[in-house]
């Protein structure tokens, strides 16, 4: 019994310590972001990597989500003759919810994992230590450009994904379910509020931040050996996914009824 309580205590302390460590890393990364040197080349590179190279996979996710969304909401709404609400439902759920969350999860798998693997490899082969010995702060070189890319490029990516998703829904609605093309588009635009888009983009920026900072943190402190890199990569993806889902709820709550 006492052993169990002790175990709980031990684990809680460990968790608190880990949270503190992570928070400190985040603090360092953020303060480095605000300080020179700024590295425009690396920032642009990181943005391109995040937005452009992820576009195919995120676009694919978005288009099929939009298509499924139309089919499913048709199944439901047809039962009480509310098919006309479909364009509205599709565009609102895509911009407010599905676009940012799905893109966030895909980016966690693609970009977050890559950051963790790269920094983890650098850690276990002493490259981070070498960089520490050579410049004032490796974080400003390795982490900050990616962090900025996460915050800046992610909303752009999500905006594109939203559009692709709506187009997917439109195609199914018009070509499969026989909706009138012009009135579907008109309804989509008419019911879309500015705030739907903004809340989605805020989410995107937050998720972009989460994915990059978690990936960087896990890689930066990877333990030695190839195993350590593998573990860092896996836990970066899992932790960012969890944090994305939690913060998604919190942001939705904050924007609720607006």
């Amino acid at each position: 019994m006492l052993g169990f309580v002790g175990w709980i205590g031990h684990r809680s302390l460990g968790l608190l310590g880990a949270i503190g460590h992570f928070t400190m890393f985040m603090g360092m990364a953020i303060s480095q972001t605000l300080m020179p040197p700024y590295r425009p080349k690396r920032i642009i590179g990181a943005c391109l990597d995040l937005a452009l190279l992820s576009l195919p996979v995120v676009g694919l996710t978005a288009i099929f989500s939009g298509m499924v969304l139309v089919l499913q909401s048709y199944t439901g709404f047809a039962r009480f003759s509310a098919e006309s609400a479909i364009p509205q439902v599709v565009v609102v759920s895509l911009t407010r919810e599905l676009g940012p969350v799905l893109a966030g999860l895909m980016i966690a798998g693609r970009v977050g994992a890559a950051i963790a693997a790269e920094l983890g490899t650098m850690r276990v082969s002493d490259q981070i230590e070498a960089m520490q010995a050579m410049i004032k702060d490796p974080i400003s070189y390795l982490v900050v450009p990616r962090l900025i890319a996460g915050i800046v490029a992610m909303p752009i990516l999500v905006l594109v994904a939203d559009t692709i998703g709506v187009m997917g829904g439109y195609m199914v609605a018009v070509y499969r379910l026989g909706f009138n093309s012009a009135s579907y588009l008109a309804a989509t635009i008419e019911y879309l509020e500015f705030f739907d888009v903004v809340s989605g983009l805020v989410k995107a920026a937050v998720f972009g931040f989460i994915v990059t900072v978690v990936g960087a943190y896990k890689g930066y402190y990877a333990s030695s050996g190839a195993q350590g890199v593998g573990r860092a990569t896996t836990s970066a993806v899992v932790l960012s996914a969890i944090l994305i889902l939690i913060s998604n709820y919190l942001i939705t709550e904050a924007f609720f009824n607006r």
């Binding site: 650098m122 082969s125 002493d126 490259q127 070498a130 004032k136």
Partner: peptide, 20 residues
């Protein structure tokens, strides 16, 4: 500390060259 590192050059056992 960090400031001292400016006067230290290190050759690591594995080289530790930056891959990228």
């Amino acid at each position: 500390d960090r400031a001292l590192m400016e006067s230290i050059g290190v050759l690591f056992q594995q080289g530790a060259l930056f891959d990228s």
